[in-house]
Design a protein around this nucleic acid. Sequence first.
DNA 1: CAGCCTCACTTTTTT
DNA 2: AGTGAGGCTG
Length: 718
Amino acid sequence: MSLHLEHLNPEQLAAVTLPDEHALILAGAGSGKTRVLTTRIAWLIKGGRVTPAGVLAVTFTNKAAREMLTRVGAMLPSASPSSLPRGMWIGTFHGLANRMLRAHHREAGLPAAFQILDSQDQLAAIKRLLKGMGVDEDRFPPREVMYFINGQKEEGVRSRDVTVTDENTRRLAELYAAYDEQCQREGVVDFAELLLRSYELLKNNEILREHYGQRFRHVLVDEFQDTNRLQYRWLKLIGRSSCLFAVGDDDQSIYTFRGANVGNMQDFERDFRVKHVVRLEQNYRSHGNILDAANALIANNRNRLGKNLWTAAGQGEPLRVFEGESDMDEARWIVEEVRALERDGTRLSQVAVLYRSNAQSRVVEHALFSQGIPYRVYGGLRFFERAEIKHALAYLRLIATPDDDNSFLRVANFPPRGIGARTIEQLQDAAKQQGKSLMAVVDGKALSFRKLIDDLRAETQGLPLKELVEVVVAKSGLIEHYKTEREGADRIENLEELVNAAATFTEEARETESGEAVDPLTAFLTHAALEAGEHQAGEGQEALQMMTVHSAKGLEFDVVFLSGLEEGLFPHEQSVTERDGLEEERRLAYVAITRARRRLYLSHAQTRMLHGQTRYNIPSRFLEEIPEGLMKWLTPRFSRQREAVWGAARRAPDPIPTLKTPRDVGGFRIGQNVVHPKFGSGVIIDAEGQGGDARVQVNFGSQGVKWLAVSVAKLQAA
DNA sequence: CAGCCTCACTTTTTT
DNA sequence: AGTGAGGCTG
């Protein structure tokens, strides 16, 4: 009910109570940015500076949007979360764009029941397009065409405006045009299109622009460092005459690989002549040593707006650092520590194992599984992305929009009903000739499929959503089909879960009243596309948390294991070739470190299985960038000779089978530690040739990976 | 038309 | 190592 302004620190309070002008809030990790954002909204409304309908708040994930909604609701009078903020627009960029396009679909040139393509759907649509146009998929891989199209859309560039520099780009622009035509014909819209379309709608339609410009007095943006150029332009348009309140942290920008533009923060300051820049630097999450480590690390980055976190909490423990002989060794150690923590009363759900890439989770999972420690792995396939769910949704879509060729192709012959490639090809030819959809030109064998869909539509006419989905799942033949599959039980369970999802969605929809009148089925399909489902198995259970560093952003844990701190892995080897790639990796490490509240473990392994091969890695440069005084090495630092691995392999009762036989090359061998007068210390990771011609490949960490001729280079065994 | 097998790929991810 | 997609054979 209350805002509790007295609990805010001076900077937070200043940010919350800024006058009605543009503001940029630089909010460090754990500095209470969500709190500032939500309190600001509530403060504006309570003070009568704005009505709920005048507020637009944008986030990146549905989860963040929900949290914001709940927290704002809790601070406002008469608030039960359901009867919430009448008319307030809180949501993701895509959610809000969708909302606008639904409301003005006619002006935007879209059918009322337009469908949304997720990335999978989009790729399928592009593959289909390329095939139809007879494009050589080796020269134009569908995935790259997709990246090109999305990249252009995210820069706000339409096909006719593409800067054509060469033949390749010219062709790509053509494909872009053809793709957009296909989408338009089929009444579907991809994620990037949602944004671009609503941007153009505002830009070209003066009435709407004025309407929304007048309406939204205050526009607030979360995670501003993650916005791309189009999103920034969208904000500029919709918030033309409003006060823009942007909250972000340039040090936590870890999504440039998907188009995020940190430069938006500087641009914003300049474009809007921002008078108020508030830095939130007091951290309420971590102990001092953890923060000091994070600060020291990120200080190595050049492109920063500048910020230093501090805490009133004590220094806490030193960071614990472990060197494993192998990835398995590292995993074993993690498991041991986790059990010790558990014995000391730490809740498993407060412990997280973080890693740079998903492939690393497997070894740890094995170790945890064999010790019977419950764990939960984040990421991977989400509910609405599962094949069986996509199949069911395809049936539903065909009921709503029969011309949806993507869906037609997905399920025309699934479960198998004798409509093979031949038949489909004929249909595609006919459709192309007549300029119609596949469903419209169905004949012969495929008539049975159209009849099935027509029957389903007739039968479900007027049924409530839940029953509708139930009937479709039952009569599509999917359940029957999965009964015959050996892995089918899980899939059937998921289909049943889909029916439940439909049931809950109906209730939610009634409560939150998304406003615009859309038929329930379309609303549900939109929900499925826009919210692939954070809803995952094992939620809320007491289990160890495992995830990539990326997915850990925004979360916090008492204890964090940051594993695989090795050159080539973290920083990832592909990052060194990208512009500013290393700085992004460092920000990633910064995000990882600042997830920990009380205890942080850092670990690396000397050898690691990757893609079926043993790799020899040296410790990450990031370990060297953390002051020695903050760390406590659980294993003697670098003292274990790499030879120890071979020694262990010889002595151990069961030798580690994955190790290659150490081959002598000019007195050196793979895995050996060496010192070079110029490049410093490194480890031999590959070798070729014999005697005088022998060459070895050495990983010198921050100095890079080099091939050296043994007879020339002054290499010494370390 | 359908199942099987080989081949190529492998950073990070939300919507 | 493990997976997914596409090609080939029955």
